[in-house]
């Protein structure tokens, strides 16, 4: 039982389809109006069936008012960190502080290389991601003295100007599954963002993921609670319960609240490309889950007292 006590976030995971051109933007607008906290977009820069995710996010940010936007997750090997940091900060300024940075080390190396990226081993890609996060934080640290200087193994920045400063404290959330990456998240990131469907053991694997993140945080002298646990989920609404996240909204709420209270998941990002599902998730699942979690947390406090 691990609940890190974060407020809950609910979001949607949108396919950045390029055809029809405005489909993904419209879904972000739907999520915004429905009151979700996050609109996130996959990023596969080598895939011409999709929009460029950064361009799409910038456009969608200008068409939405309240919702936060993030890549889920942005492909660091094809998005050099200094440029990415500047882009993220720029959009955060333009949008009034609504951008978060979902970041990934890269997974599909053949198409990354085909686009001109460098092939890395899994171990190298973790190291590159850590360097990249360092570059990004330096670019954002406008009050630090001097220009950005990084002479890393994967990234070199020779005296770039810092800034712009983001409008708010942009969170760095990393797509992470394996121990090395999870420990890096604990050390250097603000959140871990895995997909439930990629966990071979399902939600039970989250305990193991948390253990590595917590170890990484503690080894770096951080409070494990500084790291948010986000989760991409899929599901469907059905009149009768059939399976995990396959049933009525009340069932979803109970199952998601269970993930919060047992595994500390505090952000649920639903893969959904249709407005009705997005609206239902926002209107029925999010408030019910929040209520269940709030009740349990209060009860827990009472018991401790």
């Amino acid at each position: 039982m691990t609940d890190y006590g974060h407020d809950l976030l609910f979001g949607t995971f949108i396919t950045p389809t390029a055809q029809p051109a405005h489909r993904a933007v419209e879904l972000a607008v739907v999520a915004d109006r429905a009151g979700l906290d996050l609109a996130t977009f996959q990023d596969h820069p080598y895939q011409p069936r999709f929009h460029d995710t950064w361009t799409l996010m910038s456009y969608a940010a200008a068409r939405t008012e309240r919702i936060h936007l993030s890549g889920n997750v942005l492909n660091l090997p094809l998005r050099p960190p200094a440029v990415l940091a500047r882009s993220v900060a720029s959009l955060d300024v333009l949008s009034g502080g609504r951008i978060e940075l979902g970041l990934g080390a890269g997974g599909f190396w053949d198409p990354i290389v085909a686009m001109g990226g460098r092939r890395l081993t899994p171990g190298q890609s973790v190291a590159a991601l850590e360097e990249g996060i360092g570059v990004i934080r330096q670019v954002w640290a406008v009050d630090d003295p001097g220009p950005v200087k990084v002479d890393g193994e994967y990234y070199q920045v020779a005296g770039a100007k810092r800034g712009p400063a983001p409008a708010h404290d942009v969170k760095i959330w990393v797509g992470a599954y394996k121990p090395r990456m999870l420990r890096l998240v604990g050390r250097a990131a603000d959140g871990a963002l895995p997909s439930l469907s990629y966990l071979p053991g399902g939600a039970d694997d989250l305990a193991e993921l948390n253990r590595h993140i917590d170890e990484g945080a503690e080894a770096a002298g951080r409070d494990p609670r500084a790291v948010r646990r986000l989760l991409n989920i899929g599901g469907r609404f059905a009149p009768a319960g059939r399976a995990f996240l396959d049933g009525p909204a009340e069932q979803w709420a109970e199952e998601l609240a269970g993930l919060t209270l047992e595994h500390g998941v505090s952000a649920f990002i639903l893969a959904a490309d249709d407005p009705m599902t997005i609206e239902r998730f926002a209107a029925e699942v999010a408030p019910a889950t929040r209520q269940l979690v709030a009740e349990e947390r209060t009860e827990g406090d009472d018991e401790q007292r």
Partner: peptide, 11 residues
């Protein structure tokens, strides 16, 4: 960043 700003302007 110019590209980010241009995308924003486009919308």
């Amino acid at each position: 960043d110019a590209w980010t700003l241009l995308s924003w302007i486009a919308a």
